[in-house]
Design a protein around this nucleic acid. Structure first.
Lengths: 122, 122, 122, 122
DNA sequence: GTGGTCTAGACCACT
DNA sequence: GTGGTCTAGACCACC
């Protein structure tokens, strides 16, 4: 399910956060769907449960999942109004990435083409 | 010249890398222009020279600058052919970031607006 | 009657305690009025009866309700003399919360505005 | 310096977060002042360093402190614009607490008196 | 020396 | 059985 690079300088829990975020964003994990339990995932990835939990906690703090004691962790339904902080961050990242793309020689047309592709998918 | 956020959880050398990248991308630092020397910059920013050197090393590894022993560091001219790898990576990142922006509730119009802003700047 | 947020990280029984407290405080549940029975409420909210009972026990401990074996639970009439302890606690909490609000940049005017809103309601 | 109740059902790290928040809010710990190091505080309180770190991490997430690898943790200067989320939470808590105070028999005059006291202090 | 990550293993609270 | 907390102890990255 996942490919984690244990040797990477990027912490394992951060890698996990990113991977899971992707799955949620790309709708592989649907709203209110249950994530694998901490222990289960820990066993699958042969990683310490605490590390998994740290990732889940981070995802909860960022508003992507919610956790219920005794029940499990679930994908948090999107409520656009709430994530003002996340939006701000994404806007910054867009600016930065656009600058880099243009620097590397991409035209605005190419960038818009990629954007249009996305529209079709979702 | 720079504004480094000592409070950021991001290591200072990474901030330096980003800032210098921006300057290169936005053509403030032109092709083959000499960057300030490690010592000079260290003094200006009241930061340990080792930190500066680490940033320069990182920029060299990413292909943004080149260093000549005893002469200094210089902005690497862009060569389209070389950057096919970089372009591929950026395209992937664009896709992912677009997906995230849309997930958080941004419209394609908003995204395009940000892109148009960039055009004006460059 | 209630809106419980199953997604909240707050235990359900705590949410129940707060909601019921509010109803009592806002005089929706009058003095000596009978609360719904544990079973009844459990069925209404499709929640485990044990959870309801835990909430009722907590409310009793805090002096908001009293329970009569075989009869049910009832709203405890306020008796000023009894609540000197509660008042002292609330005064402390007010001080602390005011300090926090001011620290975060709220003006005393804003705080008073919120207080005035409350007056209208009750 | 602190009084922690290890037996409390409230987690130790949360107690720590609250205590430290109070110290910051009440200006006992000033802007950019260094907090005790994780290990130091752990030893003082005879608590595991991981627990202290968890508290510090939470405080960082809430914007009250910032941590620098290799340097220490410091009080984050207040920037009113940033804590919109925190303000929202405080407003809710104010409403709730006002309702409770009024229920217990406090008059709005008494509440305002407490607020005025605070003004003088800060 | 500082914060940050990770593991191993224990115990608790909730359902 | 689930997430949450805590401890003990190791190692890494940064300065």
């Amino acid at each position: 399910m996942f490919e984690l690079d244990v040797r990477s300088r990027k912490p394992i829990y951060e890698q996990l956060v990113e991977k899971l975020k992707k799955l949620i964003i790309n709708d592989v994990l649907k709203e209110d769907e249950k994530l694998p339990s901490v222990r289960e995932l820990a066993q699958q990835l042969t990683i310490n449960p605490n590390t998994i939990q740290k990732a889940y906690r981070e995802l909860e703090a960022q508003g992507y999942i919610y956790s219920l004691k005794g029940k499990g962790s679930f994908v948090h339904p999107v409520e656009k109004s709430e994530n003002e902080e996340g939006l701000k961050k994404v806007r910054e990242e867009l600016k930065q990435l656009f600058a880099e793309a243009i620097y590397l020689g991409m035209t605005t047309e190419e960038i818009q083409a990629i954007l249009r592709e996305m529209e079709g998918v979702n």
